[in-house]
Design a protein around this nucleic acid. Structure first.
Lengths: 335, 335
DNA sequence: GGAGAGATCTGGAACGGTCCAAAGAAGGGC
DNA sequence: GCCCTTCTTTGGACCGTTCCAGATCTCTCC
């Protein structure tokens, strides 16, 4: 009971397998009656082409591998959405691998992708093993999306302008009248860039002295802990700019627990404008990092790179936009 | 500049391609020195087997297709996680397709999977096009996870016991002393089952008269709207059991906006125990639906079905557990 | 009626693996 | 030294497509 092959179809339609192949690939050089005969046979047998055989022969898979850091991070999912839609429109399917899940395996996921001979590779976010991306990029057209590293010879980078985003958030808080502002920092290059933007703006306004940076991580828990530390310090900040929305929500909880009202006693800005920030009950002021757009641009870059693998790599930054919601306000006049 | 093939490796190692194949598949029948020579050649050439060629010849792909409803739903992601880990352990890789994204395409995703000749198929959640699952299931071993339909001849179903979960939530509220309880209903079979569980328990306690059902959907927005309607009615409920956590969070927002305190003035229960419910700032009492566990069980079912495609389909339900957090309390005595 | 030009159609060689039957090598017993 | 058995190794068929060179058909024109 094997699935029918192109030969079965040919036999049924009374033509050669080559003609079936022509029909299926939409050739114009086929007489209408033969075309109909072939299509009828396809229908009757329920024939489906075998993708493995096709890609073996064509030497390409029309498939792009996506190496993702963490599916639980809503921002990545949004990026993925943009990526998918653009790639799909170009007839490429997408193969997803979550690196977090298989962290132990390290390089293994790129191994899988190279064995599958994917036509391209997209690395989303900071990955556990940058070396794996390097070796993969030597074989397959590769684009890095949503982060700024690793920087590699023939690899494009598509990301948000994190430094600018951090500047927007900080300027907003200063504009409201805040002076003593804290930043909950993230990890990796992205964390570094956002911190740098924060510090630069504080410096420009002569507020370096009242700028605090507390290390957190990408989770709610990390944001919570960092905020507890910040708010128990002798001279507490009146505003907190968190590395991302998750950390921002953690900060919200900490403030509440310590009896501070947001935004009355404490202003709060997140980052990414995930659906978390849009939940009415949180309604977090945040920086919109345009995940969907970044995904689409990464896809287009990859298509260009597949067409011309040797083209020099470049960095494309998307400008983020501040999204003001309910967690920011001027500080208490008494302050 | 083609990637090296098994023949290149054979030539370099001074053996036949068959021997290379044997070494790579771990045969014990190879003399150690030859094995070493082959492995050295593999290393030097950077050889990677071609998955397409292999699956063409082996007539299987060691790949499972996962048809997902919506990656934005955290519960599905958790299920996926369980699925992945179990399948990976059995040497199967996972191919993910988000049906929501490609809704217009309808059956197209199962088409893709059948063309790829995946060894198995997992349909997660209520899918836009159940007919597509039916036709796919006729060709490929299939398991439905996280929902109760479609019921098909040779298809297993692995899901949470939604009716039981709803009963737990309702019993909890009644146990706290609530009498007038509302349910925000979801869509599809799952919505139906949870509503049924709610209504059954209310009836058993002679509270049918004070049970209200308001239609919502799976989103925060839907939960918000439904709750606004519920709370503006003349005889407002003292507790709300929402179809899922998202809707529960919407309800939380609505209550707050109308000046009701949770859980003081209104108790609230969600469903799924997603990370949303675990956010300290929300701290939602909810029903843990064991997504990870369901994923693993679905994977095991699929493995069994791949081994014996003709085995009769069955339904495996996981018992959910109530997770009491901060949004439920006894009603105001005055009530 | 035949040549020439297109339009259609076909056989067979890839593509890169797996697997099987059989060849070759090595060891054991007489 | 020879035959038999057990290990190792190998050539070649096959998996289901695509693609190319050439075969065959159909027309048109002289």
């Amino acid at each position: 009971m094997r699935p029918p092959t192109i030969r079965d179809v040919a036999e049924r339609a009374g033509v050669s397998k080559s003609l079936v192949s022509l029909v299926l690939r939409g050739s114009q050089q086929v007489r209408p009656e033969k075309r109909r005969a072939v299509l009828a046979a396809v229908e009757e047998l329920g024939y489906r082409p075998n993708a493995a055989a096709r890609s073996l022969s064509e030497r390409r898979t029309r498939t792009v591998g996506v190496l993702l850091n963490d599916l639980r991070n809503p921002w990545f999912v949004e990026l993925l959405d943009g990526l998918n839609s653009e790639l799909y429109a170009s007839g490429l399917r997408t193969l997803l691998a979550d690196g977090r899940l298989n962290r132990r395996l390290g390089e293994d996921l790129t191994h899988t992708f190279t064995e599958l001979r994917v036509d391209g590779l997209i690395a989303v976010g900071t990955l556990p093993d940058p070396a794996a991306v390097r070796t993969a990029a030597a074989r397959v057209p590769t684009v890095v999306a949503g982060t700024r590293e690793p920087v590699l010879p023939n690899v494009d980078i598509v990301a948000g302008d994190d430094e600018l985003g951090a500047r927007l958030a900080t300027e907003h808080l200063i504009g409201l009248g805040h002076r003593h502002i804290a930043h909950i920092a993230g990890q990796g290059v992205v964390g570094e860039l956002r911190r740098r933007g924060f510090e630069a703006v504080m410096r420009e306004h002569g507020l370096s002295g009242s700028a605090t940076v507390e290390q957190g991580d990408l989770t709610e828990e990390g944001g919570y802990r960092a905020t507890v530390r910040l708010l128990s310090a002798p001279h507490r900040p009146t505003a907190v700019f968190a590395f991302n929305d998750m950390a921002g929500v953690g900060a919200l909880s900490a403030a509440e627990e310590l009896g501070l009202r947001v935004p009355g006693d404490l202003s709060l800005v997140g980052y990414d404008n995930t659906y978390l920030a849009r939940l009415r009950h949180l309604w977090l002021t945040t920086v919109d990092n345009a995940g969907h757009d970044i995904g689409r641009r990464a896809a287009r870059r990859l298509l260009d790179r597949i067409a011309d693998p040797a083209r020099p790599g470049g960095v494309a930054l998307t400008a983020p936009v501040l999204e003001v919601r309910g967690t920011t306000a001027p500080p208490r006049p008494a302050d």
